[in-house]
Amino acid sequence: MDDVFKALADPGRRDLLDALFERNGQTLGELCARLDMTRQGVSKHLAILEAANLVVTTRRGREKLHYLNPVPINDIAERWINKYDEPRLQALADLKRALETTREREGR
C-alpha cells in the first residue's frame, strides 16, 4: 500500500493515470504526445506506476500497451472509506428486511 500512496503523490503520475482513464491501452509514444513531459520522464513515471500495480502492460506485436489498473485504489478505498460505511449499509439492509417483513405480514 505504501507503493500506491507514493505513486499517487505526484501530479505528473496522476496526469498519466487520467490519460489512461480517458483512453485505456496507450503506447509510450501516445502518452508522451499528450503530456508535457520528456519521454524519459514518462517512462520513469510509468515504471513507478507499474511497480505499484496501478498500471499494467500487455504486448501487441512490438508495442507495449499501458492500462490503468484501479484495483489497488479500490483496496485503499476499502481500507480507509468503505469500512466506515458498514454500519450505515447494515442499517439499510436491516431497514429493507424490516419493511419487507411488515409488507408480508400485512399482505396476509
Binding site: P70, V71, I73, N74, D75, E78, N82, K83, D85, E86, L89, Q90, L92, A93, K96, R97
Partner: peptide, 28 residues
C-alpha cells in the same frame, strides 16, 4: 465493476471475509 470484484475476491481469500459492500449490495 471489476476492481470491486477483485478487491472482494482478494479479501475473501486472504481473510476469509468478502468485502461488506459486495455482501450487502446484493441484499439492498
Amino acid at each position: 465493476g471489476w476492481p470491486l470484484v477483485l478487491s472482494s475476491l482478494k479479501s475473501l481469500l486472504e481473510t476469509g471475509r468478502a468485502l461488506h459492500v459486495m455482501r450487502l449490495s446484493g441484499q439492498i
